[in-house]
């Protein structure tokens, strides 16, 4: 009978092997994204459809959530800054915390809930229905046709939606700056521009791209692990989603560490 430490060790080794597999798999998909032959007419069609499902269909809900949540967030942050007498740091807080940290994080949470779960289920259902075998039989590369467009869509959608979220937040900031601080629009804009660093924007886009890559890749990977039984679908989906949330937290922590050093 295995001792507690043996079981723990086995679990740790399995987790490490699993992570290594995911990284190797990510590398294969990443390389394909830059290969010209990946972009067949079929792949481009899937890419356009995926962008439509992820970025366009969600827009009304996304804008409403951005306006409500963004206004609430800006209102709270501005009130705290006023109470602490830190009005001059509005720009730094807006750019450093809200635009580069909270916008990508909230966007990725919304997209994970809506699209990553859908991708995970879609892959698992295709596996159960033996549709993957169909693609293989007709010599259609699964990475080119299924994975690359979804991963690319993840990157594009998170970057665009996160930018939209930031824009909505900054616009609602104009209103709150006037209400709370009696600040003129030009002063607000100047404070923002003074606090904007090009490197922060690049880091934000880079982080969004990494989020987009992993929140689509991990659900695909776990969806493909489903067996040919229907009962494997919920197992594959729940495992995939837990791993996606773990990946989001890891990326967030790594990005904070990057900022510190």
């Amino acid at each position: 009978m295995k001792t507690f430490w043996e079981r723990l060790g086995h679990a740790a080794i399995r987790m490490l092997e699993d992570s290594a597999d995911t990284i190797v798999f990510a590398g294969r998909v990443f390389v394909r994204i830059f290969q010209r032959k990946t972009y067949s007419s079929a792949m481009r069609e899937v890419l356009v459809n995926q962008i439509y499902f992820t970025s366009v269909q969600i827009l009304p809900v996304f804008i409403i959530v951005s306006v409500f949540f963004g206004s609430l967030l800006i209102g709270i942050v501005f009130t705290i800054l006023k109470d602490l007498g830190l009005t001059e740091f509005i720009g730094h807080v807006l750019m450093g915390l809200i635009v580069t940290e909270l916008s990508p994080f909230l966007t990725v949470l919304l997209i994970t809930l809506r699209s990553a779960s859908a991708i995970n289920t879609e892959m698992a259902v295709m596996k159960v229905n033996r549709e993957m075998k169909t693609l293989e039989t007709f010599r259609i590369d699964i990475i080119d046709y299924l994975l690359a467009p979804r991963v690319l869509n993840g990157i594009i959608s998170i970057v665009l939606l996160s930018s939209l979220f930031s824009i909505v937040l900054l616009i609602s900031g104009i209103l709150f700056a006037k209400l709370i601080f009696g600040m003129n629009q030009d002063v607000y804009m100047n404070m923002l521009l003074d606090s904007t660093r090009f490197s922060d924007i690049i880091i934000m886009f880079f982080k969004c791209a990494i989020y987009g890559f992993f929140i689509t890749l991990i659900p695909i990977r776990f969806g493909l692990r489903a067996s040919h039984e229907l009962t494997s679908i919920p197992v594959a989906v729940s495992r995939g989603m837990v791993n996606v949330f773990a990946a989001i937290l890891i990326i967030e922590v790594l990005s904070l560490l990057t900022k510190l050093y």
Partner: peptide
């Protein structure tokens, strides 16, 4: 799908 993937045939034509 087969024509679009293997022959890169434009979507509408396929």
């Amino acid at each position: 799908l087969i024509k679009k993937y293997h022959d890169n045939m434009p979507r509408q034509e396929a």
